[in-house]
Amino acid sequence: MDRRQAIKWLGAAVAAAAVTESVLGAPKEPGALSIEGSGKIIGTDPVLNKQYVAGELWSLTLTPTQRIAAIALIDLILPPDDPANDKLASQLGVQDFIDEWISAPYVNCAADKPVITEGLDWIDAESAKRFQKKFTELAEVQKCQIADDICGKTPVKKEFKAYQNFFGRFRSLAAGGYYTTPQGMKDVGYVGNRPTLNFDGPTPEALKHLGLA
């Protein structure tokens, strides 16, 4: 994912806040563009029709080791439904999006940065402690053992509480990155934003589903 794409996402989050986002009551991810209360000026907007390369506007954060752990975790969270035809989420560049996000100077991004980097360091350290390997080298069942302890689906033990937040933030960013790609949109069942002559409204099946037909 390039810089321009990330800017588009940030822009989408802000523009949508006007009506749709507030009306749809989506999670409060947006707000990322708010400037820190310290009066510190971040800078001016980038030129939106220029193609920036990653790291050009601000330096990226993930180390090669963290990036490899991030890729393994992304693909664990978002496995393809049809491995023969779908790409892995990491092949779609979700880790690039996360790196871009945590590297940006905006308040929400900056708050996520230590959560994500420390969490990725921990997940490798925990893998070494339990299995003497890096997270990416673990078998699926071993990865799941670690993920199960912090994902929050079952009560999280006291010693893992600190990394529950990491997993939640990482999953939220990974999902945001993935579901906004064409494959992710198809995956979730989004079929809008296609030029059509007429807006047909709900299908008979949809009306029936809601008891309206």
Binding site: E29, G176, G192
Partner: peptide, 10 residues
């Protein structure tokens, strides 16, 4: 079922 955004799946 509107366009997915950063909050989708969160």
């Amino acid at each position: 079922r509107r366009m997915p955004s950063l909050g989708t799946g969160g």
